[in-house]
Design a protein around this nucleic acid. Structure first.
Length: 504
RNA sequence: CGGGGUGUAGCGCAGUUGGCUAGCGCGCCACGUUCGGGACGUGGAGGCCGGAGGUUCGAGUCCUCUCACCCCGACCA
């Protein structure tokens, strides 16, 4: 300890993050802000996605987009504005979204005659019909599909769009719920109910596969209850993720829309027997919320832990030296190593900034969640080795330079599997089966996580439980055997168990 | 929208019953020494004290209004 150590400690505190146990919400905010993923903006409820965060989103997009195309979908783009009359057409849909819509009423500003340099809305420029900023695009898209679909030969119609949408939420949280957010929305039209249901389930499986293979997240696949269903859907399927504070988060949804939108927008097709039929529809989406989900599921008190397959930087190389000359030499060796790794399709960066010491950089890249760190110093150059550290376990070892690319590829897969296994273990340890309402309340209050219980299938019971405990039915899992039993709340006969949790 | 909290330098904060030139740490800039787990020295730059109005000889400090953000609820992906 030197006389200056208090300063050193203060410096550490200033840049460190709130531990999860102390304040989970603050921990989450610290991670998002300090890792450089995103920032608050000057606009209420809207965030700025910074380059690091956007690079992560682009990696998510790239993989999902590929998966959508592999399942036969094409990208298109539809307008941001939805005429109010379109939104009204499907009743359930209209009611569901009405209270969170931003509405454009005017198309022009003018200078304020009374206050110089100020602008006011020009009262002369009122729109005849208000335009709603899309909270989702079913309305515009079905209005368009009407003119695209004539015959069964036009089906199935498999469209996706990458877009921004606006939902005027009361309370926002970075990535998890912002007023404007980025997402993808698939919209498909089919000739039969069976085919549409199959599509909705297929895309749910795509999301589940993506979560497992790219985000390293185990998901619970299921169907929503009537109370939690998408406005305008017949069935809503979802993937639910359990995060570290014991709450569940809906990470993706896929809807079987029946013929609701086809009827509302008069979308019919001529079938093989020359009869007019309404088409069957699906829609499905995931958003930038996925980023919030993976932060909450994998992060620790040192910072982000990014799943290696999506991390914008998979490997960071930090040269270590005793002098400026030596730093040059190490940086050169580091760049050579970088090229070698990049040739094997690894995303690698070298941080040879002479202003920061290695220790500072170690902490910084841990905060940013870079899966693998290599430290290259004079000792290594002599021995033909490198120090290799993995972010998920915070362990390090010295390894030979020879065969490093192959070793790192294996390691990244290993980190991926280990993150998945850790998250799965957490979920299993936080999934409790109960048979009484007393036990249910105790688990929700004290332990959190999923609570599996028999439910009589009524919305009244579901809402009563929500009222009393804040827990909602996240879903009825698709791969669950329906076992009859007794509802924990009403004591009535139950056909199946529902998975409850307090949710984001 | 209700309850609680916070706004003072890029970040984190201090600033007493109103008092004269608004401070500290980190960061930033320059130079030097350093570099295998958040280095150090010397010198320097950086403020409309969230905004508006008021009280006062005098306001970061008191009063009124407002805005923004955070946390907790109700609404939701």
């Amino acid at each position: 300890m030197t006389a200056h150590s208090p300063n050193k400690n203060k410096a550490f505190e200033a840049s460190s993050i709130t531990p999860r146990q102390k304040d989970y919400a603050q921990w989450y905010n610290d991670l998002v802000l300090k890792s450089g993923l995103a920032d608050y903006s000057a606009v209420r409820g809207c965030m700025v996605i910074k380059p690091y965060g956007f690079a992560l989103w682009e990696n998510i997009q790239r993989q999902l987009d590929r998966m959508f195309k592999e399942t036969g979908h094409q990208n298109a783009y539809f307008p941001l504005f939805v005429p109010k009359s379109f939104l009204e057409k499907e009743e359930g849909h209209a009611e569901g979204f009405a209270k969170e819509c931003a509405v454009v009423t005017h198309y022009r500003l003018k200078t304020d005659p009374e206050r110089k340099g100020k602008l006011i809305v020009d009262p002369e420029a009122r729109l005849e019909e208000e335009l709603v900023v899309r909270p989702t695009s079913e309305a515009v898209i079905w209005n368009t599909f009407k003119s695209w679909i004539r015959s069964y030969r036009d089906l199935p119609l498999l469209i996706n769009q990458w877009a921004n949408i606006v939902r005027w939420e009361m309370r926002t949280r970075l990535f998890l719920r912002t007023t404007e957010f980025l997402w993808q929305e698939g919209h498909t039209a089919h000739a039969s109910r069976e085919e549409a249901v199959e599509e909705a389930r297929r895309m749910l499986q795509v999301y589940a596969d993506f979560a497992e293979q790219w985000l390293a997240l185990p998901v619970l696949k299921g169907v929503k209850t009537a109370a939690e269903r998408f406005a305008g859907a017949e069935d809503t399927y979802c993937i639910e993720v359990l995060v570290q504070d014991g709450k569940a988060i809906q990470a993706g949804t896929s809807h079987f829309l029946g013929q609701n939108f086809a009827k509302a927008f008069e979308v019919t097709f001529t079938n093989r027997s020359n009869q007019q039929e309404y088409v069957w529809a699906t829609s499905w989406g995931v958003s930038t919320r996925l980023i919030g989900t993976l932060i909450m599921a994998h992060g620790d008190d040192h910072g982000l832990i990014l799943p290696p397959r999506l991390a914008p930087v998979q490997v960071v190389i930090i040269p270590i030296a005793r002098s400026n000359d030596q730093l040059q030499q190490m940086a050169q060796a580091a760049r050579q190593l970088q090229a070698e790794l990049a040739a094997q399709d690894l995303r690698v960066m070298v941080d040879d900034d002479p202003q920061q010491k290695p220790g500072w950089k170690f902490t910084e890249y841990e905060l940013r969640g870079v899966p693998v760190r290599l430290a290259l110093g004079p000792r290594d150059l002599e021995n033909g080795t490198v120090e290799l550290a993995r972010r998920d376990t915070m362990t390090k070892e010295t390894v030979p330079l020879g065969g490093l690319p192959a070793r790192i590829k294996i390691l990244l897969d290993d980190i991926h599997r280990s993150l998945y296994a850790r998250a799965l273990q957490f979920r299993e340890q936080h999934t409790t089966y109960v048979t009484t309402y007393e036990a249910f309340k105790k688990v929700i209050e004290e332990k959190g996580g999923f609570v599996v219980a028999h439910w009589d299938g009524t919305t009244e019971t579901e809402l009563a439980i929500k009222e009393e405990t804040k827990a909602t039915i996240r879903c009825i899992p698709l791969d669950q055997q329906p076992v009859p039993g007794t509802c924990i709340y009403s004591g009535k006969p139950s056909q199946q168990q529902a998975w409850f949790a307090v949710a984001y």
